[in-house]
Structure formats: structure tokens, C-alpha cells
């Protein structure tokens, strides 16, 4: 049975590892995109402007309520459509551009991650001790300085557990991109199943790989949480 997973032409080990590499790449590229979006939306929902607050609230509510696969299809089909319309409008002779599945995956997963992250970040921001920000203002720091030097470093501690869960969810959601033909772990498994006719064996291996990644992430996150809380006195 192990020869099925041999590395090289005789087995599927190398194909599956290449798929795994795409899955990990996708997750790692999506993380900063989602975090950036999360910060933007969190700021919008805490803004003094009512309109911006509404935008933030609307975005988080809608994105959290939709199935991830629907978001992915909307982005893959819709953004591609919009992009081509924009290009044609600007230059009617331009060739149709392809919206790559990888980019669609990053945008869709990043949008979902951003919506959930915005709520986590907002919660973390609200758990901060306001006295410290006030002290910062009192000694003449600008709001930007207060944010960068006082609030941001401490937010991390409150946000880490929530963001860790989101990372694990996103890692699992990357499996969805196999539907829009990105050669990730899930799709390479499907290809292997098509040839070997051993669906249970191969999907079980894929599950075990995802499982291993999640357990590893949990271990790393636990360490990061311990480190983030190292200065906090325990009661």
C-alpha cells in the first residue's frame, strides 16, 4: 500500500506534496491580506462617522453569514467579469484577462478572514485598559503614537486566541479552492483517486495531512499565546 505514496513516477507522494505546497502557499499569502482587511474593517466599525460604522457592520454581518463556497464563486466568477468589463471599457481591444484561481482564492478567503478578524480585533481593542491610552494622551502622544506604542502591542495578547482559531478555519477552508481548479492538496488527491480508484485511502491521507497541519498550528499558537502573556501576572 505504501508504494502508492512513493515519491516519483511510480507513486503519488510527490503530486500530493506539491498540492500541499500550494495549500500552504495559499494560506500564508491569504493571512496578511485578511489581517489587513480585518484592521480596515475594525477601524471602520469603530469610526466616529456613522456611515463608516454602518459599512463596517454591514461587511462583517454579510460576510460572516454567507457560505464560504458562495463567496468563492462570487469572487471567482464576479470579479473576473468586473475586471474584464473594466479593461474593455478602458481599452476595447484588450484581450480578456484570466482571473487566476489562486488570486480568487486569496481574495475570497481573505475577505472571509477579514470579516471574522475585524470582530476579533474590535473585541481586543475594546478589552484594552483605557487608562493607558489616556495617560499616553496626557504626556502629549499623538493618537497615532498612542495606537502604535500602547494599543497595538497589547491588542495582540487579546486578539491572538481568536486569530489563531481563524487561521485554523482558513487553513481548512483552503480545501474549497480545489473546486475552482487550483491544484491544491484536495485536488491532487482527487486526481490520484481518479487514477488509482482508491478513494478512501487517498481522502483519508488528505484528511490526516490537514489534521496534522491543524494540530501543529494549535501547538505553535499555544506557544505564541504563552509568549504573548509572559508579562501578565496570573491570579
Amino acid at each position: 500500500m505504501f508504494e502508492l505514496f512513493a515519491y516519483g513516477d511510480t507513486g503519488w507522494g510527490d503530486e500530493i506534496l506539491r498540492g500541499l505546497a500550494i495549500t500552504i502557499q495559499l494560506a500564508i499569502v491569504t493571512l496578511p491580506v485578511g489581517l489587513f482587511l480585518g484592521f480596515l474593517v475594525a477601524f471602520a466599525s469603530m469610526s466616529k462617522l456613522r456611515a463608516l460604522r454602518m459599512v463596517g457592520f454591514g461587511y462583517t454581518t454579510i460576510m460572516r453569514g454567507l457560505p464560504e463556497i458562495l463567496t468563492l464563486f462570487v469572487v471567482y466568477n464576479g470579479v473576473g467579469l468586473l475586471l474584464n468589463m473594466a479593461v474593455r471599457w478602458w481599452n476595447p481591444e484588450a484581450d480578456a484577462i484570466d482571473f487566476s484561481p489562486f488570486a480568487a482564492g486569496v481574495v475570497a478567503l481573505g475577505m472571509v478572514f477579514g470579516a471574522f478578524a475585524a470582530e476579533v480585533l474590535r473585541g481586543a481593542f475594546n478589552s484594552l485598559d483605557t487608562g493607558q491610552s489616556e495617560a499616553g494622551r496626557a504626556i502629549g502622544m499623538t493618537p497615532t503614537q498612542v495606537f502604535r506604542r500602547i494599543q497595538l502591542p497589547q491588542m495582540w495578547r487579546f486578539a491572538l486566541p481568536g486569530l489563531g482559531n481563524l487561521w485554523i478555519n482558513m487553513l481548512k477552508d483552503t480545501a474549497l479552492v480545489s473546486i475552482i481548479a487550483l491544484n491544491d492538496l484536495m485536488r491532487m488527491t482527487k486526481v490520484a483517486v481518479g487514477v488509482t480508484k482508491q478513494p478512501f485511502t487517498f481522502y483519508l491521507v488528505a484528511c490526516l495531512i490537514y489534521w496534522a497541519m491543524c494540530v501543529l498550528s494549535e501547538l505553535v499558537l499555544a506557544r505564541m499565546e504563552r509568549r504573548a502573556n509572559r508579562g501578565i501576572r496570573r491570579v
Binding site: 480545501a175 482508491q198 478513494p199 485511502t201 481522502y203 484528511c207 489534521w211
Partner: peptide, 20 residues
Amino acid sequence: FMRGTPIMAQLFLIFYGSGQ
């Protein structure tokens, strides 16, 4: 296992995997 694997992979494991 249920929390650490994509639900899509679980679905494939049961639906396609049962064929084996």
C-alpha cells in the same frame, strides 16, 4: 479529527470513499 479536517474532505471521504 472532526475539528481538524475540512468538512469537504470529510464529505469526500464518506461519499467517494465508501466506493472502495
